[in-house]
Amino acid sequence: MATIIFYILAMTALAATGMCITRRNPVHAVIYLVNSLFAVALIFYLLGAPLVAAWEVIIYAGAVMVLFLFIIMMLELAPTEQPQGAGWRRWAPVLLFSLIILGCTVALMAVDPDAAEGVPTYYASPRIFGYTLFQEYALAVQIVSFQLLYAAVGAYYVGRTPRRRQEAG
């Protein structure tokens, strides 16, 4: 069962990625990428990494992609002219991918209502995960947090509105 779902999800992810990279409209690309990420998140779950799967959805699909969308809209990069073709045709792939992913999720929940053991394979419980992360990799965590701080400062610095140029312009 899990194996079949895995292959279905893998195909979905690949197809969504393929759609993503061929779009000219960045908004569409981001939507397909979100689809792909959802599929990969479920694959993570199948491979015994529920925590990573959750973060994939929260951070990647949630935060990062929204940031992309936000920037795209802020810079008004999306083509303004209406694309040709019927509406359902344009929405069909997204809907299809979403339905597949949703179906797989439901199927998984049906198989294992408690979501306790997931699938019969290696399973990293959040406890082990936390211990390892904050004990063995404590230093790396520190470094990465500094990195994030620098990134925040750097992003602020790069993205600030230079006063002088504003005056000159």
Partner: peptide, 13 residues
């Protein structure tokens, strides 16, 4: 993921 977030924030800036 953490690195990606950092990278994305900088590159989008």
């Amino acid at each position: 993921m953490a690195m990606t977030s950092a990278e994305v924030s900088i590159s989008l800036a």
